[in-house]
Design a protein around this nucleic acid. Structure first.
Length: 407
RNA sequence: GUGGUCGUAGCUCAACUGGCAGAGCGUCGCCCUGUGGAGGCGAAUGUUGCGGGUUCAAAUCCCGUCGAUCACCCCA
């Protein structure tokens, strides 16, 4: 009798089956490649940080931290976002980093939220930021990168809505938080929302009018001319004074990216947050950039059919005719692998050929090699193309040539 | 964190007001001992998420718990 346990994942934490994992890897690789194309350097930060790093900044939301005492009694927290740890990182290594410093980062973050669809306790974020450049050109560059990512991923259209937090300076924080919801709840509900947050109705109406009358700031103009010069079509960007990004540390330009063909909300959000350096470390420094929602972006790409469909990692299965002929299959496998061709060999030589073919079929492996007694005697192999059922007897050097052409 | 809905075979789901736990798909076997997707025939599979309670009797009602999902909150 053993204490058997139930196989299950923790609330809000996920396993990924091979098909899903391949999609996720596809997106990670694309994101990394695009960021590198823009000259952004990859970095990583630890999963665990001192709790105090986050706790000063977030106030109300501390209940969302995954925090505990480690074995040494230290108060620690799982990475809650990428921005705050990276501000620490930039401060800590400023002498070793270029200025400006451009970095991207694809790592999981942890929040102890109540999970919902598309909302998990462990989720990947892709952040890209520019540090040490206070000019709106730095904002413009990260915004251009925001758009280029979606363009390079194959989206027909993405749209960035840009605002400037300095335009909202005269509004109290509660009003800004409310304004951010206007698209979701409408103007009427917005007014009652503001009242609920302790703003008088008259004031609320005043704030709403003010916001609606706002015109693009100089920084926003710089950004738009940058985007235009980079070659983005005018319908890829727009000024929207209701984009507020209710983070307490946002200042200066703020933006969110939406996919018109995907309705589940924004897929990316960014802002300038120079003040964070001051608040945390008393440093005069600047940072601007974005966090990209990995799951939403992946879902959007999947829904719109942008993920290349490769059912299997294996492109070629070497079947094993019988235990006696296993060595022939092994020899071919080794030969092909030495030629840098990925092959999978069927593991159990006792299993009949029809099962092995069925396996290849199910896994979507397009080519199967068969080596029976006849082939073994002639020192050749039979290549079967699953899609067409076509079979050819072929020797190894020609096989390599043929596969190179097909792959 | 607050409130609602849900959890039955590998998957999708049935089971009238409490009364013998079922179907489709898939899986497996055979038709087909050197060849996969179609077709035919046959077979296996359940602690009804878990724990407790009420009842002659619980998948069904009650409590707790784990998980999923929706709304709110929040969303660095």
């Amino acid at each position: 009798m053993s204490n058997q346990i139930k196989p299950q994942t923790l609330k809000g934490f996920r396993d990924f089956l091979p098909g899903e994992t391949r999609k996720r890897q596809w997106l990670k690789e694309k994101l990394a490649k695009i960021c590198k194309n823009w000259g952004f350097e990859p970095i990583e930060t630890p999963t665990l940080e001192y709790l105090e790093l986050f706790s000063g900044q977030i106030g109300d939301d501390e209940k969302l931290f995954f925090k505990f005492k480690d074995q040494g009694g230290r108060e620690v927290a799982l990475r809650y976002d990428q921005t705050v740890p990276t501000v620490r990182y930039v401060t800590q290594y400023q002498n070793q980093l270029s200025k400006p410093f451009k970095r991207y980062q694809i790592q999981p973050a942890f929040r102890s939220e109540k999970p919902q669809k598309g909302r998990y306790r462990e989720f990947i974020q892709c952040d890209a930021d520019i540090y040490g450049d206070p000019s709106p050109y730095a904002d413009a560059e990260t915004i251009a990168l925001s758009l280029d990512i979606y363009k390079q991923l194959g989206f027909k259209q993405a749209k960035v809505l840009v605002n400037d937090r300095t335009l909202l300076k005269s509004l109290p924080y509660e009003a800004i938080v409310s304004i951010d919801k206007i698209k979701k709840i409408g103007e009427d509900s917005l007014l009652s929302e503001m009242e609920k947050r302790g703003i008088e109705l008259i004031k609320a109406k005043e704030y709403l009018q003010l916001v609606k009358s706002l015109k693009p700031s100089e920084a926003v103009k710089v950004i738009f001319s940058y985007l235009k010069n980079y070659g983005f079509d005018e319908n890829w960007f727009e000024f929207d004074p209701t984009i507020a990004r209710s983070f307490s540390y946002s200042q200066g330009p703020i933006w969110e990216v939406f996919i018109p063909d995907y309705s589940a909300g924004s897929v990316l959000g960014g802002e300038r947050y120079d003040g964070l350096f001051k608040n945390l470390f008393g440093l005069n420094y600047s940072g601007t950039g974005f966090g990209l929602g990995f799951d939403r972006t992946l879902e959007a790409a999947d829904q719109l059919g942008l993920i290349p469909l490769k059912i299997s990692v294996s492109r070629l299965l070497i079947s094993v005719f019988s235990p006696e002929l296993l060595e022939n299959s092994l020899a071919v496998a080794r030969f092909l692998r030495d030629q840098d061709i990925s092959v999978e060999i069927y593991s159990d030589p006792e299993i009949k050929l029809d099962k092995q073919l069925k396996y290849a079929d199910k896994k979507g492996i397009p080519f199967v090699i068969i080596i029976g007694p006849d082939e073994a005697k002639k020192k050749i192999i039979k290549l079967k193309i699953m899609a067409t059922r076509e079979q050819t007897m072929i020797d190894l050097p020609s096989l390599v040539k043929k596969l190179r052409a097909k792959f």
